[in-house]
Amino acid sequence: MNKVITTLLTAATLLVSASSTAADKLTIATEGAWAPFNYVDSSGTIKGFDVDIANALCAEMKVECKIVINDWDGMIPSLKNRKFDAIVSSMSVTKDRLKQVDFTDKYYSGGLRFVAMKGKEFKNDPAALKGKTIGAQRSTIASQYLEDELGDVVDIKLYDSQEKVYLDAQSGRLDGFLSDELPTHAWLQSDKAKNFTFTGEAFAKDDIIGIAVRKNDKLKGKINKALATIIANGTYAEINKAYFPFTVY
């Protein structure tokens, strides 16, 4: 009997230990191809605004933070299959996504904006865009807008990553492209984008960016609490300042 009790106690201890270990560590996914929000530098290190926010949240929650890269198209399926605990990858909160996952409070907001070569005739109204080839990253708010609003007007080219959109624009295979304003703002500061400019004002500025977690996961509440804290104590502002000369919140 004593041996049985000892065995049960040992098993229970191991279960508690395993549970504590899981609770003390979060695996967070990001795309790694959406600079300056998430990208991989020349040394292979994952960096960016999203990454810094994720690490700040983990620090506030006092958990170990493991950042992993996942392809954009497979983000939500992989989250649902428990390959990681949350997505911090500039993901917009949409009705379709809310059917599959839960989102935390916003951690920044953005808008859409067209980009074209400087000196090139490019107006943002449907009549002027008719017949033009416009690019966007697949499965984004930008691609959804093009398909919903301009699908019968323009030739839409979709790409697996934003970097491929930039490359085709630079190669002259696109008349222009549509993207989130904030990452494109950073790209336009680079030498390789010196021949490009925004055209028109930003729109769809009610675009809310949140952190995705599995349905009914209590992690949502913990992240919301940590997010409110880093906003209140100035940590968020310091991260913001490192990437943008204006607030993105």
Rank of each mutant, 00 (worst) to 15 (best):
N224F: 01
A237M: 06
K220N: 07
A232N: 11
K192Y: 06
K222R: 13
N233V: 13
T197A: 09
I211D: 13
A228N: 09
K222L: 12
I223R: 04
N216Y: 13
I223K: 09
K222W: 06
I208R: 15
T229N: 08
N224C: 10
A237Y: 01
F198T: 06
I231K: 14
A212F: 09
Y236M: 03
A228D: 10
I223Y: 01
G210I: 14
F198L: 08
D206Q: 05
G234T: 07
G210L: 14
I208H: 13
K205A: 04
N224L: 06
A204N: 12
I211F: 12
K218R: 12
R214I: 05
G234Q: 11
K225Y: 06
K220I: 15
N195I: 10
A226N: 08
K218V: 15
I223A: 07
E201I: 15
L227C: 01
G234S: 09
K218Y: 05
G234K: 08
D207A: 11
K225D: 03
L219Q: 02
G221M: 02
K205W: 03
A212H: 09
D207S: 10
A204K: 12
D217W: 01
Y236T: 02
T229V: 08
N216S: 12
A237N: 08
L227D: 02
T197G: 01
E201D: 15
I231A: 06
F196I: 06
G221E: 08
N195M: 07
D206H: 01
I211V: 14
I230H: 05
K220R: 13
K205D: 01
G210R: 14
N195E: 13
A202Y: 02
G200S: 08
V213N: 06
F196H: 07
A228V: 11
G200D: 06
N216M: 05
K205S: 05
F203W: 14
I231D: 00
R214G: 12
I208G: 10
G234P: 05
N216K: 11
G221H: 07
I209E: 03
Y236H: 03
I223H: 02
A232K: 15
F198G: 04
N233T: 08
K192G: 00
K215A: 04
A193L: 04
T229H: 13
A202M: 13
T235N: 03
E201V: 15
L219E: 01
G221F: 04
R214V: 05
K194S: 01
G200Q: 02
I209D: 00
N216E: 11
R214H: 02
D217H: 01
K222G: 09
K215M: 11
K218C: 02
I211E: 11
A193G: 00
T197K: 14
I211K: 09
K192I: 12
G200F: 05
L219D: 03
N233R: 12
I223D: 00
V213Y: 00
I211W: 11
